[in-house]
Design a protein around this nucleic acid. Structure first.
Lengths: 209, 209
DNA sequence: TGTATTTTTGACCGTATGGTTAAACCATAT
DNA sequence: ATATGGTTTAACCATACGGTCAAAAATACA
């Protein structure tokens, strides 16, 4: 009973995730989610009262899933360079398996910024960044990266990794024309991005601020 | 007549752009566009037959507006480094004035990839990139950037510039916590991005492929 | 001024959609 | 076997939405 119960709830949740990620909150239809889950539309309302409730549940879970992938960068005991290679390899591989997540999350956040604020509120990012800074203080100082410029650097890392997926629809067209397919581009990006960004910071000593 | 005619059509177009960029195709309501334009809903259908027609017109114009901003990179007669500084300064300034464009365009393209294909089909990107490559062959070869890795490099440039706006909703929350506001972050990014990326490529000589 | 043409409006239509409700179904406990 | 409780369904509701249409208003033309 509770067993079957959990099963249907999961079935609904998975179907909803698929449809929402694909169509977005506004484009998704409760009917489509029901069909996708192989159940009656009323059941959606039985388990998750409204479309909003269902969406919020899906959105929250999806955000957590993506944010969690950033954790090792802060936790693992690796050198800066190792962390960078680790980050791009793991993060891009994750996005390969979930290519639509970035566009979905970004879009919904821009559509309704308040939603994310509640989610992130609990994460003390300032503390995490400071920890990261202390962990690699020696290396970072050598590369002239200050506490002030750290956000610029970190966001650049995210950009290099996430952007190709967020802009997938455009890049596919461009890349097709150059002979490289999107998949091969991404595969090559794992190491390219790491090399590129390591170069960007390791020779960054002559940039006064 | 034709004068007033053009006026209402423009009024509609501007209102539609605002609403579509803000809410997306699915989230936008014809009624809202009419109100925004200060006219009757039927007039929308008189000038642009359907919501699809209106959206396509808006979307196409918006894409052109953004793509046009990339042109100087290919045309202007500047050194590579000058081009890079020029690109980030101009491009980020443009996005400052139109911060919602990246998210809008990316989202709609991912939602309906065929739309962009018709738009880009005419642009011979392969040729443009080759031209760019030839223009700066000496510098690029010195930096070990090949025809094959050029897409990786160019897309990285786009990422560094566009991503902060696409992810604005998230970054605002993070940046608020670190004391820097989004606006200041962007202002600083114009020069940071240029410095950062120039470093990334100019010392890129030891990366075998 | 009167007539034809174009622009603008308000009322209306059919349908899609999120949501409700009452009844059917089904497992379990007595 | 049957009463009880949660689960699932079909039928239904109200509303929102894109779109149409005929008439009014404005404009051009004679």
């Amino acid at each position: 009973m509770t067993d079957n119960d959990r099963l249907t709830e999961e079935k609904i949740f998975e179907a909803a995730t698929e449809v929402f990620v694909d169509k977005g909150m506004d484009g998704a239809r409760m009917q489509d989610i029901a069909i996708q889950a192989g159940i009656n539309k009323s059941l959606l309302h039985y388990y998750f009262r409204t479309k909003d409730h269902l969406f919020n549940a899906v959105f929250e879970m999806t955000c957590r899933k993506l944010l969690r992938k950033f954790a090792p960068v802060f936790d693992e005991n690796l050198s800066l360079e190792e962390k960078i290679r680790f980050f791009f390899r793991e993060h891009i591989t994750f996005l390969q398996e979930n290519p639509k997540l970035p566009a979905f999350i970004m879009n919904e956040i821009n559509r309704n910024p308040d939603r994310i604020k509640k989610l992130i509120k609990n994460i003390d990012i300032e503390k995490k960044w400071l920890e990261l800074f202390e962990q690699h203080r020696a290396e970072l100082e050598k590369y002239n990266i200050t506490k002030e410029s750290l956000p610029q650097v970190i966001i650049s890392f995210a950009a290099i990794s996430v952007f190709p997926f967020a802009a997938k629809g455009i890049l596919e067209v461009f890349l097709e024309k150059t002979g490289t397919g999107f998949n091969r581009f991404i595969e090559e990006r794992k190491s390219f991005a790491a090399d590129f960004m390591i170069q960007a910071i390791t020779h960054n000593t002559d940039t006064g601020k």
